[in-house]
Structure formats: C-alpha cells, structure tokens
Write a protein that binds this DNA or RNA. Sequence first.
DNA 1: CCTTGATCCTCTAGCGGCTAGAGCATGTAG
DNA 2: CTACATGCTCTAGCCGCTAGAGGATCAAGG
Lengths: 150, 150
Amino acid sequence: MLQRSIGNLAKATGVKVPTIRFYEQIGLLPAPQRTLSDRRVYGEAAVGRLAFIKHARQLGFPVEAIRDLLRLSDSPEQPCETANALAAEQLSAVRAKIAQLQVLERELQQMVDAACIGEVANCRVIEALHDHTLCAGEHQTERRPTYAGL
Amino acid sequence: MLQRSIGNLAKATGVKVPTIRFYEQIGLLPAPQRTLSDRRVYGEAAVGRLAFIKHARQLGFPVEAIRDLLRLSDSPEQPCETANALAAEQLSAVRAKIAQLQVLERELQQMVDAACIGEVANCRVIEALHDHTLCAGEHQTERRPTYAGL
DNA sequence: CCTTGATCCTCTAGCGGCTAGAGCATGTAG
DNA sequence: CTACATGCTCTAGCCGCTAGAGGATCAAGG
C-alpha cells in the first residue's frame, strides 16, 4: 500500500507543501493519518483528490465552488445539475473577465501607439491617464463577483 | 477657492471615502489640510490627482506603477521613456492574462458542451476535473508577476 | 436650544489564496 | 555521528481595498 509523505505528495501532484497543508486547514483535503512523530501520511486517494483540486483551481474555480464540486464527486448518486451550473457560471465569469481585459487592451494599445519621445510634459501616456475623456471605451470596473481569480 | 470634504471629493471622483483614506495612507495622495476638528479639506488639485489614480487603476496598473507615473506627472521635465515602458509592460501583462483566460474558456466550453443530464456518476464536468488528460490545451498557471490585478 | 441623522475621525480586522519565515523536532545518508 | 533534508506548528505578509466598532462633529428642522 502506497504511503506518501507530504513532500512526496507535493512532488506527485505539483502542489507545494504549504499549499497542501493550507487545503487541509480550509477543509478541502481531509486530515490524513499521522506517524508516531506526527507526520502526515497520505494514501493514493489523496493524489486523486489533490489533482482534482489543482485542476479546478487552474480553471479558476473559487475554493467554495471546488468544495461543492468535491462534495458532488464524493456522492455520485446526486443529480449533476449543480456541477453543470458551476461550470457554466465559471465559464461566464471567465468570458466576462476576458471582455473586460480586452477593453483595457484596446486603450493601452492606443496609449502605447501614441507614445512620445521627449519629456513628460508632452507625454501621451501621462496625458491619457489625466484625461479620461480620451478613452474610447468606457472601462467600468465591475467589482463584486470577481470569481475567476487567477 | 473650492474646498471639498472627503465625502464631496468621493462624489466628485467616484472613489469611495475609505479608499481615499487608504490612498493617503499608502502615499498616493498627499495628506491634505485639516479643519480645527480634524476633518480633511481638499482643493481642486486633489480631484485631478485622484481621477488620475482611478483611471490608472481601472487600466489595471498596480499601485507601485501608479506611484511612478504620478512622480513622472509631477516633474514634467523628465524624459517620458519610463511612462512608455510602464504602459507597454501593462499592455503585455493584460495580453498575457487574456491569452491565459482564453485557454480556460476553451476548456470550460468543452465541459459545458458535454454537460450530462443525470447523475454525478456519469457527469462529464466532474470527470473532466478528475482527468486532466482530457484537456486539450495545457493550462499552465504562470504564477509570479500577476501584475494586471483586476 | 435641542434633537436627529449624516458625515467625519481612527483603529482594527477581514477578503482570497496562498507564500514566507521562525523555531523546533525528526528522518536519512554517508 | 554528523550533516542536511524534511517535517511540524504558528504567525505574519502579499494586494487593494472593504467593513465595522466606537466615537466626535456638523447641518437642518422643530
């Protein structure tokens, strides 16, 4: 029976040791068994679970969503609407963020294109920052459900 | 001579009161004069400076970059290479982030497209999260200079 | 004049998702 | 037996705010 130390698990999954402890602390990973000298000992299941978490994090799912997804994954008789909904929600969060960033991209592109050679007194970049009306697109920063962290 | 309270400045710029105090604390805004009862009193210059900061933040410039840009803006005889460089750096940070998110978008799209109707046991979403090899694109999460916060 | 409610003050703590470091106890290889 | 790696816990820091406690002060209406 494969038994892994935390460092070994870290290597196997590419998740850093302190992060693994952090996931345990916030309840994403169950507390593993310990040796007599209090070291964590993981079985193979932990590798799968941690890989799942890692993958979901790479996709930008927030921890709370991952908690839900893990619960679902643990009880396979449940209907999977929730999982679909979470994925759809994450997709639209990612799309929203892309759209937002593309607005920024356009404005920054303009600033960079107009970049001056000379003194700040005539600098287009500084000027553009001073004068918001020079912006084509309004870049409203929607604050609340940031969601797709990354 | 226009004198504004912090609340008035907040309304004039759309920056929240606590945020204004925060900007003062971290040295983006100079400490203003005070009334006898210790309330902050701002002149018109503060409106401009705060609008500048707000605009730069909306564009995703990190606070440290804004500090530099403000310094430049304050001393107009300086060459503006630094400003151009900061803008260019921010542009490429934004582009990198867009590219990254587009990879996620594609994978999430696939997950959502394949969404099942039924039980979690057969759920494509959960399955995809379990099995990283189902991903087309590798979504490496570049960690370090996140930069374009948003 | 007095009350009410808005605004202001400072200070501390919290968000998300880790990361870094101190200070110590074990484990492992030569 | 001696290094050095790895493990442990605990606390604090990152970014850019945001929220709340607990209090002072202001402006308007009765």
